[in-house]
Amino acid sequence: MTMLEIRDLAVSFATEGGTVRAVNGISYALKEGEVLGVVGESGSGKSVHALAVMQLLSPPAARVETGEIRFRGTDLLRLDDRAMRAVRGRQIGMIFQDPISSLNPVYTVGFQLCEVLRLHLGLSRRNATTCAAELLSLVGIPDARQRLASYPHELSGGMRQRVMIALAIACNPSLVIADEPTTALDVTIQAQIVALIKRLQRDMNLTVIWISHDLGVIAGLAQTVNVMYAGHIVERGPVRSIYKDPRHPYTVGLLGSLPRLDETVGGRLRSIPGRPPDMTQLPPGCPFAARCPQASERCGAGMPPVEDVGDGHSVRCWHWRDVVAARAA
C-alpha cells in the first residue's frame, strides 16, 4: 500500500537576495513499511521537502509553488490547519537534527512527552505519565520513571535524541521523518541511534524517511535511496543498485568522496570539484552541469527527463550511459 506519494512538489523561499528555489518538482512514492534514504549535500532541498510534508515551512517567506503530497490518499496541502494538526505528531512523527535545541529547555521531558500523548490520544494525566515512562524505556533510557522529571539540559546529547525519538513515535504514527538525526552526535552514539531506529522500525512496522548526507548510515538502513541535488531528485533506486551501479555523475562523485579504509594512509581525500549552484539563479539546464565531468552542450539547454533504467532505478541525466560505460572501461 502506498503510504506517501509526492507529485511534482516545488517549494521556494522569498529572501532579500532573491527567490530561492529550494525544491524544483520532485515526485516519488513510498510504500508502507519502507525505509527511504534521502541523500544530498546542504541546500539540496532534502530537509525542505520534509518540512513541506509536515507543513512546517513558515509562510509568507516559504511557499509551496506546485504539487501534491498524498498521505494515505489525502493531499496534505489541501488540509486546513486543524486537520493538519491532527496529522502532525499523530500520523507523522518527526525527529530533528539537533537534539540540544529541539527540546524545550524550560519543561521536563515528562511534560513534553505527556503533552503529545494527551493531545492526540486523550490520555489522562496519570495514564500519560505511565505511557511516557514506557516510551522512555522503549527508546533505551534507563530509570525511565525518574528521567521523566529531568529537564533536557540534564541529559546527554544521545539521551536527548532518544527523547526526541520517543516524542516522534509516541502516538504510534505510520510515518516517521528523521531529518539528519545523527549528524549532531558522536560517532559511537550515532551507531546506537541508528540501531534504535532500525529496531523500532521493524517492531512497529514504521515507514521511515531518513534524511542524511552520510551515505554509510543510509546504506545500512534504507531500502530505497533518493539522491537530491539543487532541489531535484537526480537519481532514485534500490539501495544496492544505487551503491553498486550509480548512473548519475553526481552520485558517482558522492560515492567517490567517501574515505576508504583500504586506501593508502596520507592519500588525499577526494571531493567533487566546484560548488553547488546559487539557488536564487538556477541554470536552465541540469544544475550539476558546471561540476560534471560528463557535461556537454546539451546539459545546459534543459533539465533531462526522469529515465527509468530498470529494477525501479531511475535517473535524470542525458549521459547516464556514458557513466556506465566509463565504469566498465
Partner: peptide
C-alpha cells in the same frame, strides 16, 4: 525561531499552545 518551537508544532499543538506554553515562558 528556535528549534523547539518547530518541535512543538511538529507535535501537532495549536498555535495558541505553541505561543503561550512553549514560546512565552522562554
Amino acid at each position: 525561531g528556535e528549534d523547539y518551537i518547530r518541535t512543538a508544532r511538529a507535535k501537532g499543538l495549536s498555535r495558541f499552545k505553541v505561543i503561550f506554553v512553549h514560546a512565552l515562558r522562554n
